[in-house]
Amino acid sequence: MKNIAFGQYYPARSPLHAMDARVKVILSILYIVAAFLCKNVLSFGALLLSALFLLVLSRIPPRIVLRALRPLFFIMLFTAALNLFFATGSTVLFSFWRITVYVEGLYSAVFMLVRIIVLIFGTSIFLTYTTTPIALTDAIESLLSPLRIFKIPVHEFAMMMSIALRFIPTLMEETNKIMNAQKARGVDFSSGGLLKRAKALVPILIPLIVSSFRRADELAMAMECRCYRGGKGRTKMTVPHLHLGDFVALALMVAFGAGLIYLNHLGYGYTM
């Protein structure tokens, strides 16, 4: 319960923390694109180096970012195994029984692994670790605001998102409290069959749902009391500004993408 990697903003002073959240959202999208541009050893190598560079730049302890990889460990393993054993090519690395492993398979397994790791690293460093959830929803609202022309309630979506994010820790705390209270009455979550364990959740879920409704009601009331009436004419407490650093970062990212394409064309070794 305590170690769920969600919205784990890590407070620190770094160029990445100081960057405009909107720019960080765009940068992480570009970074994902860049990860899919890579085709050979050189460009994947550059990609891996860039992830390390981001890690150093963010001043977040590597241990903490590595924690974000843990929940996806099996997906990574599965992807690598799939590529390793099922990719066909021309050069046989080794074969035993009915399985033949090709050099191409090994390459693509390693490439996929690097790609997944870098994707997680990039997005979590840009978005979750260096950006507060509030800044992130503000950024998304601002980036999506052109959609207002099509009568899409962008502000309302952003508000719903920030409320949802805001209440995740509260609900986790509440869950923890109720679990403790029911444990004190002898509920056993960790033994018995599937049915027994599922039944043990009832005393947790019912109070949790009841209190979520109560909270929602109270929040709606509190917002009405402060005359909230949606996004129309609403001003912001902190108005974001773009700085020189933001433009530099965007330029660097575009240059990085171009560099990857150039490296792909050098035609070194296996190409995906």
Binding site: A181, R185, P203
Partner: peptide
């Protein structure tokens, strides 16, 4: 036996009787 803060939010059974019986039943 521990009664946590605001214990009234842990009641979950259909009747008060069933809820009080929850601990002894366990």
């Amino acid at each position: 036996g521990l009664v946590m803060q605001y214990p009234e939010y842990q009641l979950f059974e259909e009747t008060i009787r069933a809820d009080i019986a929850f601990g002894p039943r366990n």
